[in-house]
Simulated scan of single mutants.
Amino acid sequence: MPTPDSDGLLAEQLLRFTRRVHRIQKRHIEQSGLGVTPAQSRLLRTLAHYGSPPRMADLAERLEVVPRAVTTLVDGLEAGGKVRRVPDPTNRRVIRIELTDDGRQALSKLRGARRSAAAEILAPLTEEQRRVLGGLLDTLVDGDVPEAGKRC
Rank of each mutant, 00 (worst) to 15 (best):
L47Y: 06
L110W: 07
E78Q: 15
D7H: 08
P2N: 07
P87M: 08
L59D: 08
Q31Y: 03
S32N: 03
E30Q: 12
G80K: 08
P87I: 00
G135Y: 15
R23C: 05
K109Q: 14
C152T: 06
M56F: 04
R62F: 04
G134S: 11
A148D: 15
G143C: 06
A113E: 01
V141K: 14
S116I: 01
E147G: 12
K26N: 04
V94W: 13
V36R: 05
I29L: 11
R111A: 05
A106D: 04
G149P: 14
P89N: 13
E98W: 14
H22Y: 07
S32V: 03
A79R: 12
V141L: 14
G134V: 00
T46N: 02
E128V: 00
G103E: 02
V94H: 12
S41K: 14
L107G: 15
K26T: 14
S108Q: 13
E12F: 01
G112Q: 04
P4Y: 03
R42F: 02
G143M: 02
S41Y: 15
K26M: 04
T46A: 08
N91C: 09
R114W: 01
V21C: 05
D144E: 07
V66F: 02
Y50F: 15
P2S: 07
V132F: 09
L137E: 04
T37W: 10
V132E: 15
R92Q: 14
D58G: 15
P87F: 03
T71C: 06
D5M: 02
A48E: 01
G81P: 11
T90N: 14
A11P: 00
E61F: 04
D88H: 11
Q25P: 08
R55L: 01
D88Y: 09
P89M: 01
D142S: 13
I29T: 02
T37Y: 11
I29R: 05
